[in-house]
Design a protein around this nucleic acid. Structure first.
Length: 412
RNA sequence: CGGAGCAUGGUGUCAACGGCUAGCACGCAUGUUUUGGGAACAUGUAGACAGGGUUCGAAUCCCUGUGCUCCGACCA
């Protein structure tokens, strides 16, 4: 894409009312626009990143057998009453609205109830199990206090997967697999080394649940890490669980962290309330064992910005960057255009800075936007036989031919 | 939901004593020059969150509302 066509622009200064690093940088670089507290629009660059995160998530969810669906944001009060989760006394962050005829509706903050009801149509035999289904969809939560930029909003994207199993053993196997898929996702998006599977409260459903916590000062949670096992314990259960649950190590390291994902065993909480049963081999009715597994792609994006950016701007890992190459023309538009076409032909995603601005501005914008490979076409580079290539997270650039560049990027 | 702070062009501003035409910088527009780390000059452009009150006079003081941010609580 040519940058002269991109409708967003960078800014030198962040709006005063944004304090969190992720929102400041994302707004300055033109990835997102704030509509109101806790509500952000995604602009072209931001959407590209979000889409990449989503496709990484999709790939791993599909790999463990997840089938993608898309449920509604509008919620039928009746099923939520059956699970006692309609009342505002129980769920304090419902957004509710109503039809013209007065029928009350909710705006989904999660989807256990609707998916359980859907599955009553399709699960009847033990032969139908196990399986899992997921969606990537907008959730609404009427947070008392939105904060931390795009990381804790009132409207946000969420990947939620639900698993359906015959018994605890089958459930546990899937639960384990889902946890592994989650770590793969966090590794791929570039925060794996800072992300720990964390024991947390299981709420009313089970003894423990697991969160995926990324170490960051911008986090709201406090966790205790066992460095031997790369496992952590959330502060909320540290009293009952003050040792590493894996190796018994009691020397745990404290840290602030961002919850980027969580996985939950639900048992029969929802299948009992909504009548989701199957006939076992003996023809006896059994309740389906469920689990739910969430990741917030927007929060993941914010976490990447929080943990990987530097004083000049964002540093995107290649896997989620809006483009692979940021091509800067320093008054060599003709030559740069050729390079642009060649890179595109090779299937490389390029943001081509063809704007009529000075070099300093192009460099500064490039650092701010944070695309992994910066390729400069200038009089100097051409005299030295090609283009100057520098990684966003590296120091000095080197000059090479276009062929070498393509090879380098593709082999990376 | 408890507590605190803030609100001046598109952005920023610990700019402005209750008093002159609301300043400066960035941006944007036009022109000339310029081109390897956010260029220079010139000419333009655009502003007091909303409503009420005090006052001869309000950006400035008071009240109400709205919005934003921060701390805490909450986060199935």
């Amino acid at each position: 894409m040519k940058q002269s066509q991109l409708f967003t622009k960078t800014r030198k200064e962040a709006p005063r009312d944004e304090v969190s690093k992720n929102a400041q940088l994302l707004i300055r670089a033109g990835f997102v626009h704030k509509e109101m507290a806790g509500v952000y629009s995604f602009l072209p660059l931001g959407l590209r990143v979000l889409d990449k995160i989503n496709s990484i998530i999709r790939k791993e969810m599909n790999a463990i057998g997840g089938q993608e669906i898309f449920m509604t944001a509008l919620q039928d009060k009746n099923i939520w009453e059956k699970t006692s989760r309609w009342s505002d006394d129980v769920i304090d962050n419902w957004f509710k609205t109503s039809l013209k005829n007065g029928t009350e509706l909710g705006l989904g903050f999660t989807h256990e109830e609707p998916i359980t009801r859907i599955m009553t149509n399709y699960i009847s035999s033990y032969k139908d199990l196990p399986f899992s289904a997921y969606q990537i969809q907008t959730k609404f939560r009427n947070e008392a206090r939105a904060k931390s930029g795009i990381m804790r909003g009132r409207e946000f994207m969420m990947k939620d997967l639900y698993s359906f199993s015959r018994d605890e053993k089958e459930h546990d196997e899937f639960y384990q697999k889902a946890g592994e898929a989650y770590m793969k996702i966090f590794n791929t998006v570039g925060v794996g080394d800072k992300t720990f599977k964390t024991f947390a409260s299981g709420g009313s459903f089970s003894k423990y649940s697991h969160e995926f916590q990324t170490i960051s000062d911008a986090g709201e949670d406090k966790i205790y890490i066992c460095e031997k096992c790369s496992i952590a314990v959330n502060e909320e259960i540290i009293k009952e669980q003050n040792k590493c649950p894996e190796c018994g190590n009691s020397k745990l390291k404290e840290g602030k962290s961002i919850e980027v994902g969580n996985i939950f065993s639900l048992g029969t909480r929802f299948s009992e309330a909504l009548g989701l049963t199957y006939n076992d081999e003996k023809g006896e009715k059994q309740f389906v064992i469920m689990g739910c597994y969430g990741i917030g792609p927007g929060r993941v994006m914010g976490t990447i910005v929080e943990t990987l950016s530097d004083e000049k701007g964002i540093v995107w890992p290649e896997s989620v960057a809006p483009f692979q190459v940021h091509l800067l023309s320093l008054n060599e538009d003709k030559e740069a255009e050729k390079v642009y076409n060649e890179l595109e032909k090779a299937g490389i995603e390029v943001l081509f800075d063809d704007r009529d601005t000075r070099p300093g501005e192009k460099f500064a914008d490039s650092d701010l936007i944070g695309i992994p490979w910066r390729v400069v076409v200038s009089k100097k580079s051409l005299e030295n036989g090609g283009v100057e290539v520098k990684r966003r997270d590296g120091d000095d650039g080197e000059v090479m031919s276009i062929k070498e560049l393509i090879k380098k990027i593709i082999n990376n």
